[in-house]
Nucleic acid binder design. Structure first.
Lengths: 340, 340
DNA sequence: ACTGGCACTCGTTACAGTCGAGTGCCAGGA
DNA sequence: TCCTGGCACTCGACTGTAACGAGTGCCAGT
């Protein structure tokens, strides 16, 4: 009961038409708008098979067909080629990203750009600390018992945290602490720091032991365990396109999911293979997002991956175009990061 | 044609009922649910007057009355007392805010708390740099021609920016630059820095002149002119409560407005008088937000104001409760900041 | 100045009927 | 064997009509 070429062509046509018109597509309209070379009746037979196999469905009897999640999946995997970007889009990307002065700036511009180009919700993960190295650690005395710990990563990320010391530490000792910490940790990948930090505490002169212990706790806690990951979001207004037809009428669950950083990270952060990932409908693990699809990929300077980015939209989305845009933006961002 | 006490009581009753039921309220229902001591017919006469004066309106003939923006305004100004918070709410606030380790942490917790308590969209402005003082400036060499400039403000804000130097500067000179910059600028209010920065460039030894000029440009550009203000947002999912009845069916304009930092700053950032501000319906300047109301106030350690926070919701909102919550949260945040 | 009564308005709901897009199936033809 | 034209059928969308009822405005009476 395999699908022959024509049936696949029919599925492709259904997906394309439905994506662009947002209305169930019938056999007659199909043969009119695509050169299938057969009659509506034949198409109907094919449709019956496609429906039986779960690739399309009828919203109600006597309506046209609509792709199922499974249908989109087949379409993405086997029936579509990634669209090349238009020159206008390429230009838009370049224009948007030049002139960024900051990592913050880069991330914000990227997320807005992505939202604008795809007309969907865009999500960009800041370069993951776990995948970054320490460039420099700075200790700034705020008072005798308080330090501001500032860590600068090679990806440009800067994290800070207030440290309450157990006892007053003179300025000279702070200098020592800073020097020691930098000697041991500068250049180390953050994921490798725990043992180094451990060693650091032990090597330190006894009069600094207390301060260094506190410091190391904070270091590990802040940089390795806690919020660690940051996310930027843009384009939520795009959810309202397609007038409530997408997302079965309620934006509620989607908006709720978008507020959860953990959810977003799961969606775009898992970049094991450095390829583009497409999650269609209920392929993702969150009930709130059953009506949505996510296209995501990793980015980073050169071939390494330091974070993820992607977009979220209705299952009825232009997959080839979206995939192309997401990839292109990721590549440009990578180049931008490589320059710094 | 003034409004006597009973007419005001009727208006108050209409606002309260409409806010809680979300349905136009009729004369009969009014006398049943409030002790007005008069008959429906009398109430109808009062309503006719209130309508003529523009405080209420009928969505259509033979429907109940609904308050107008003007009606809400009168209600807020003269007919309502700020509700004291319930002990449960007070406890929630304290529980939510203890344990914050960071300015970032404080802001994020606050905005989520505010969204949760008011069940609306919450907005918190980070402490404004313009209202902060420089606590410390740090210069971290990244390469011979690149520095990372990190500024720590007394409010806990940390801003960083990459500086491209016109020529290589040896490490010792960086130390000098750092020392000079801190001597001149530490403790200064950021709004007062421009002349100080200017003076700094002129005092510097000639071999550092070039580097210092670049540095000062970046300083002024980043800290005074550019993004300067930051905003945190939460609770957008609350916009979907009241099933599309609020906001006349489309969240679009609201979501668009919420993406514009400038808009949000205008809404909650203007805290000239340190009192709570209520913008009802089209009282705000943005067309996109004509269907929304904003309750905002300033916050800061002690009596000074360093930033604004507030919530945005449908004009049909519980003003007394929302005002109370916004004020309480602002006060707690102020205390929290004062501790640091 | 308030109240009861009454006619009136108009949105909502229910129901019936028509229309038409789209289907499934079948018999006939390449 | 596969495709096609034809045909009966289904069912949602739309239209028109009628009954209902919440709510109003007005007026005469207390």
């Amino acid at each position: 009961m395999g699908l022959d070429d024509r049936k696949l062509a029919v599925l492709r046509a259904i997906v394309e038409d439905y994506v662009s018109t947002q209305e169930p597509v019938g056999s007659k309209a199909l043969v009119e708008r695509h050169q299938l070379g057969v009659s509506p009746a034949t198409v109907r037979n094919d449709m019956a098979v496609l429906e039986e196999e779960g690739y399309i469905r009828q919203p109600h009897t006597s309506a046209g067909r609509v792709p199922t999640d499974r249908g989109y999946r087949l379409f993405v995997d086997r029936l579509s080629r990634v669209k090349p970007l238009s020159p206008a889009e390429r230009r838009a990307i370049e224009r948007f990203l030049v002139g960024a002065v900051d990592l913050d700036d880069v991330v914000h511009r990227t997320v807005r750009l992505l939202a604008q180009l795809t007309r969907q919700v865009a999500v960009v993960q800041y370069p993951s600390l776990a995948r970054s190295s320490v460039r420099h650690l700075e200790l700034v005395p705020i008072s005798t018992t308080r330090l501001m710990l500032v860590m600068i990563a090679d990806t440009g990320r800067v994290e800070q945290r207030l440290v309450e010391l157990p006892a007053p530490v003179p300025a000279d000792d702070v200098t020592d602490l800073r020097r020691l910490a930098n000697e041991k940790l500068a250049g180390a990948r953050l994921s490798d720091t725990p043992p180094l930090v451990q060693a650091l505490v032990e090597e330190v002169p006894s009069e600094l032991r207390g301060a260094m212990t506190t410091l190391s706790t904070v270091l590990l806690e802040t940089l390795v365990e806690r919020h660690e990951e940051r996310i930027a979001l843009a384009g939520t207004a795009n959810l309202t396109r397609g007038g409530l037809l997408d997302f079965q009428g309620s934006l509620r669950p989607i908006l709720e999911a978008l507020e959860e950083e953990v959810v977003l990270l799961k969606l775009i952060g898992e970049t094991e293979p450095s390829t583009t990932r497409v999650l269609i409908g209920d392929e993702n693990e969150f009930d709130n997002l059953r009506a949505a699809s996510v296209v995501s990929t990793g980015y980073g300077p050169g071939a390494t991956i330091v974070g993820g980015l992607g977009v979220l939209g209705p299952t009825r989305m232009d997959y080839p175009g979206t995939i192309a845009t997401v990839r292109a933006v990721a590549r440009y961002v990578g180049e931008l990061l490589a320059q710094n």
